[in-house]
Amino acid sequence: MGILWTLIIGGIAGWLGSLIFKGGSLGLIGNIIVGIIGGFIGYWLLGTFFGTAIVGQILTGAVGAIVLLAIINLLTGRKV
């Protein structure tokens, strides 16, 4: 059940991050990957600033996804 929640929260966080960053969507799998990696980045940057509930985890993942999308944008020189 933990893996399923990770995928769901990662997908929502990646999708939310791509909307806020105003980049093109990377598709379902891409959003899940960006959201999961973004969750690690967000937790590293913010800790439990938004809390440990589902909404806090999604917000932390979204912030991390925005940071990740900004880094990808800088490295590739194109809008993701």
Rank of each mutant, 00 (worst) to 15 (best):
A65E: 01
L19I: 12
I12G: 01
G42S: 04
L69F: 03
G11I: 09
V63G: 01
I37C: 04
T48A: 14
F50D: 00
I32A: 10
K79D: 08
I8R: 00
N73P: 03
L59Q: 01
L28F: 15
I41K: 05
L28S: 13
A13W: 02
A13V: 03
G39V: 04
L68R: 02
L7Y: 09
W44L: 13
G38A: 08
I3G: 13
G39K: 06
I20C: 10
N73M: 11
N31L: 04
F21S: 14
V55M: 11
T6W: 13
I9S: 09
F21C: 06
Q57S: 06
G27H: 07
F40Q: 09
A62R: 02
K22A: 14
G17K: 02
L46W: 10
G51V: 07
I72W: 06
W5C: 07
K22V: 13
V34C: 10
L74N: 11
M1C: 07
G35N: 01
G11R: 07
L74Q: 14
L28P: 08
V80T: 13
L4Q: 09
G47V: 01
G51R: 09
I12L: 12
F21A: 14
G24Y: 05
G77Q: 00
G30W: 03
A65M: 03
S18K: 10
L45K: 05
Q57T: 02
T48G: 08
L46D: 06
G77H: 02
G35M: 01
I58S: 06
L74Y: 14
F40Y: 15
G56W: 07
I33S: 02
I72T: 11
S25I: 05
A53K: 12
G10Y: 04
I54Y: 12
K79L: 10
I71H: 10
L74G: 11
I54K: 08
T76C: 09
N73Y: 02
G56L: 06
I37R: 00
I12Q: 04
G35V: 04
S18V: 11
G38L: 01
I36V: 15
A13I: 03
G42W: 03
A13T: 03
F50R: 02
N31Q: 10
I71A: 15
I9F: 07
G56R: 08
G56D: 04
